[in-house]
Design a protein around this nucleic acid. Structure first.
Length: 427
RNA sequence: GGAGGGAUGGCCGAGCGGUUGAAGGCAGCGGUCUUGAAAACCGCCAACGGGGCAACCCGUUCGUGGGUUCGAAUCCCACUCCCUCCGCCA
């Protein structure tokens, strides 16, 4: 959601910036809806002011023991007109709000212009892709071979695009979650939270998944509850409708949750293996900052996510998304892409964004400086990291010729092992 | 699921249907005092929307949505959430 006063004042500038990300703002429609709404509002308010004055007069008359029947009749008629006008005003307000709710955030000035994801810009690379003296396998071959990944049985108990991890595979997933949370809390200063895995629609509106992207979500039947597509939703909304002390910012939270996505519209993409699943595990980083600090904090948050990859020795690159590839709520996004030898490509493993005040306005997350007025905070979040894809990256990057997988040093204490043997056991 | 109690400003908390946007306290801000700080004392302090260059004016908001009334924080109905007790249960 945008700052209405600013938006109204500079609609054309907003339209230009929105066009850069491929969104066509209907400026005429905006003006029409905005003016209609304000006109109705003014009418209603004028009548309400009149009624207020008249009612007070009646109060005085009656206190003085005088008759006010005539005035009462008159005010009753005003009341009827108010009711009628209120209904119209409400309708105009809703039409306007629906319109605004569908307008995405505008890209930050530092975001490269582009027409598609092909225009995203690589900013850095870390680590060298491993060299193999054999043909490296993809995880969808290696996992089942080791007996640690089972997609057939997952489809039996759920459906396609779910996974069952067995033995060392399950342990590896769990170790990664704990490892990531430990690093973020003890080395990067985040506070761990364990939020609900279901949220209501107000929370999803706050972060921007609703109303536009309902088809990407799983919903509980007959309840106002949805499975979380990312911990961003429950964690960002933790402070919805609150006013934080500016001195307490930035607030840095990290959370593990499973994430549930219907993946409607992604048919044919990443069909093999566990790259794209209806359920996956993720450790998420969320920050609430003062507006002037948010871009510095985005750099730090992204570096925090990168630190996990570096500790695990996984080669990756950082990409800044171009205007066309930006998500609905984001003003700027860095994607971290990990090298996957089985597929010979970099694959997104983390997405770190600054939403500026876009989510804060939708969810009403504010702060107050000493003695000042409430101001909207800036919100940020990023994966730190997607656990399932980290699992894939480890299995594919550290595979040996015999099918065993070397465990990165940083993870060894969590698995109490140095290698995941060709027999699927940890040694 | 059953019975009862509750929801008011950043926080706590009062509030006969008619200058109540709402007492009081805490916190915050400004000042007096002090070498400085604390204490004490004085003053200021809700949010959102609309209008205006501005001073300012108007409206809305006391969990949410309806209703009664000339007029609702205050009365009625429904719902949501929280607390206590009972039942069931990881």
């Amino acid at each position: 959601m945008h700052d209405l006063a600013a938006f109204r004042k500079e609609v054309d500038a907003y339209a230009r910036r929105l066009a850069a990300r491929g969104f066509v703002l209907d400026v005429d429609r905006f003006r029409e809806l905005d003016e209609a709404r304000r006109k109705k509002l003014a009418e209603v308010e004028e009548l309400r002011a009149l009624r207020k004055r008249e009612s007070a007069e009646i109060g005085k008359l009656r206190k003085a023991g005088r008759d006010a029947t005539e005035r009462q009749l008159k005010v009753r008629q005003i009341g009827e007109r108010i009711s009628a006008l209120e209904a119209e005003a409400k309708q105009a307000e809703e039409a306007f709000r629906d319109f605004m709710a569908g307008v995405p955030n505008v890209p930050h000035e530092s975001v490269p212009a582009g027409g598609s994801e092909a225009d995203n810009v690589e900013l850095k690379r870390w680590g060298a892709p491993p060299e193999f003296d054999f043909e490296p396998k993809a995880h969808w071959d290696l996992g089942p071979q080791l007996g640690i990944l089972d997609l057939e049985r997952a489809a039996k108990v759920a459906r396609a695009r779910f996974a069952v991890y067995w033995g060392a595979g399950a342990r590896l997933e769990r170790a990664l979650i704990t490892f990531m949370l430990d690093v973020h809390t003890s080395e990067h200063g985040y506070t761990e939270v364990l939020p609900p895995f279901l949220t209501n629609s107000a929370a999803l509106f706050g972060t921007g998944q609703l109303p536009k992207f309902a088809e990407d979500l799983f919903k509980i039947q007959d309840e106002d509850l949805w499975l979380v597509p990312t911990a961003e939703v429950p964690v960002t909304n933790l402070f919805a409708k609150e006013i934080l002390d500016a001195a307490s910012l930035p607030v840095k939270l990290c959370a593990y949750t499973p994430c549930f996505r219907s993946e409607a519209g992604s048919y044919g993409k990443d069909v093999r293996g566990i790259i794209r699943q209806h359920q996956f595990q993720k450790v998420e980083l969320v920050k609430f900052t003062r507006p002037e600090d948010s871009y510095d904090e985005l750099e730090k948050l992204t570096a925090d996510a990168e630190h996990i990859l570096e500790k695990l020795g996984l080669p990756y690159r950082r990409v800044v998304l171009c205007t066309a590839d930006l998500g609905f709520s984001a003003a700027k996004t860095y994607d971290l892409e990990v090298w996957l030898p089985g597929q010979g490509t970099f694959k997104e493993i983390s997405s770190c964004s600054n939403f500026e005040a876009f989510q804060a306005r939708r969810a009403s997350i504010r702060m107050r400086r000493a003695g000042g007025k409430p101001e909207f905070v800036h919100t940020l979040n990023g994966s730190g990291l997607a656990v399932g894809r980290t699992w894939v990256a480890i299995v594919e990057n550290f595979q040996q010729k015999d099918g065993s997988v070397l465990i990165p040093d940083a993870l060894q204490p969590y698995l109490n092992a140095e290698v995941l043997g060709a027999d699927g056991r940890l040694w």
